[in-house]
Lab assay of single mutants.
Amino acid sequence: FHVTIHVGDITFHIHGVSEEEVKKLEELVRRGADWREIKKTIEEIEK
């Protein structure tokens, strides 16, 4: 999957994300995680 996440003024683009990881990111966004937490999760996914 290709994912784009907008957190305030920050936009993250992630490529090659599995469905499971998409759900993890959706959950973070849904519970209102700040951009640092989302960035950390994205960095883990990209490894």
Rank of each mutant, 00 (worst) to 15 (best):
A33P: 05
H13R: 02
E20D: 11
E26G: 08
D9L: 08
T11Q: 06
E19Y: 15
D9Q: 07
W35Y: 12
E21L: 09
E43P: 01
K23P: 01
K40M: 11
L28M: 12
I14T: 03
E20Q: 11
I14V: 13
G16P: 04
H6I: 14
E26T: 14
E21K: 06
S18A: 07
E46W: 11
I5E: 00
I14Q: 02
F1D: 07
I42E: 00
V3Q: 03
K40L: 11
I5H: 00
V7Y: 15
L28N: 01
E20S: 11
W35M: 15
T11W: 09
K47P: 06
I5N: 00
D9G: 14
E27T: 05
E26C: 08
E43M: 09
V29A: 09
T4E: 09
G8V: 02
L28C: 02
A33D: 04
K24Y: 09
G32W: 03
E20N: 10
G32H: 08
I42L: 12
W35S: 11
E26I: 13
I42N: 00
H15P: 01
V29Q: 07
L25M: 04
H2G: 07
K24E: 08
E46L: 15
F1H: 11
R30S: 10
E19M: 13
T11K: 05
L25C: 01
G32E: 06
E46D: 11
K47N: 10
T4Q: 04
L28A: 07
I42M: 07
V3F: 05
I42H: 01
E27H: 07
T11P: 02
W35A: 14
R31Y: 05
V7D: 05
I45P: 01
I38D: 01
A33M: 03
V22R: 10
E46G: 11
G32V: 03
T4S: 08
W35K: 06
R30I: 12
V22L: 14
R30C: 05
W35H: 10
E20Y: 09
G8T: 02
V7G: 02
T4M: 04
D34G: 07
E27Y: 04
S18Q: 07
E27P: 00
I10Q: 15
V3K: 04
T11D: 05
E21Y: 12
L28K: 03
E21H: 14
V22P: 00
E46K: 09
L25D: 00
K47E: 12
H2T: 15
E43C: 09
K24N: 08
D34E: 05
V17D: 04
T4L: 05
K23V: 11
H2E: 14
V7S: 07
V22G: 06
L25T: 00
E44S: 10
A33N: 03
V7L: 12
V22T: 06
K39P: 01
R36M: 15
W35D: 07
D34C: 05
A33Y: 00
G32N: 12
V22F: 13
T41R: 11
I10T: 09
E37V: 05
V29M: 13
R30H: 13
K40R: 14
E37F: 01
I38W: 02
G8N: 08
E19I: 11
H15L: 06
V3H: 05
R30Q: 13
I5W: 00
F12V: 12
H15F: 14
I45A: 05
H13F: 05
T4N: 04
H2D: 15
H2N: 14
I10A: 09
E21R: 04
E37W: 01
E37D: 12
I42C: 03
I5R: 00
I42G: 01
F1N: 14
R31K: 13
T4C: 03
I5G: 02
H13G: 01
I42T: 02
T41Q: 08
E37H: 01
F1E: 10
E21T: 14
L28F: 03
A33H: 03
I42K: 01
H15C: 06
E26P: 00
I14G: 01
G32R: 05
V22E: 02
